[in-house]
Every structure is written in structure tokens, then in C-alpha cells.
Amino acid sequence: MERRWVTIADSSELAADGVKGFSVGDKRIVVVRYRGRYYAFDAACPHMAGPLDEGTIVEGRLECPWHHYLYDLESGENYYPKNVYPDDLKHTVAPLRKYPIRETEGKLWVALEDAKA
């Protein structure tokens, strides 16, 4: 599928180590800026659709404000509770849907079409 890059905001809108939500069409996307890098995910937590754009960064992971699940920024995989769930339950914790993101000339661009789980 061909990538469709869309601009979502000026990069100055996102504070260092900040979390912010943006609406793109009917999508709600959360953008995280952490240690100078940007990450973009679906803003609805895969657990119970909690608002990740109201979340915080905890030790380099994105935390859902509702039930405090933690997700790895690089992979989008769940860290907690997956790290302590018994083996037969680990599969029940879904990863975040991640979007490619880049910064060009002060603008943040997200590729929507090739979103991958």
C-alpha cells in the first residue's frame, strides 16, 4: 500500500518528552516526543480504548491513564502487564498500532496508509 504522508502539526507544538493528541480526519493519533525522537500511535489504548493522548511517559514507555498499561515506544508492544503475565495470558495483551512519523522543516508528518500493528 502506498504511503500517504499528512502533516499534523508544527513540531514546536510538542514539548520535549511530551505527549499530545492530534485529529487527522476521523483518526485520533497520539504523538510522543522522547529524547529527541518522535513516535506516533493510535490514541485509543488497545486494552479498553483509554485516551493515550492523555497518557504520560514512564521510563521511556507510554502509559495509559485509565488502567496504567505501559507500551514500548520503539515497538509499540505492551511492556506491563505482559512482563508479569503468565505465559498462557501474554497473548491477550495487544500492541499499539504504530504509524511512521518524521519531522521536516519544523513540521510533523505521519504516514497513515501503511499503518502496522
Binding site: M48, W66, H67, H68, Y80, P81, P86, D87, L89
Partner: peptide, 13 residues
């Protein structure tokens, strides 16, 4: 229980 602020603390395998 489903809405609990923290995940279930299951007994390890």
C-alpha cells in the same frame, strides 16, 4: 474488576 486501575496480579506460571 475490569475497570481496575492496575492489571490483574496473576500467580506466575
Amino acid at each position: 474488576c475490569k475497570d481496575a486501575a492496575c492489571p490483574d496480579a496473576y500467580l506466575p506460571s
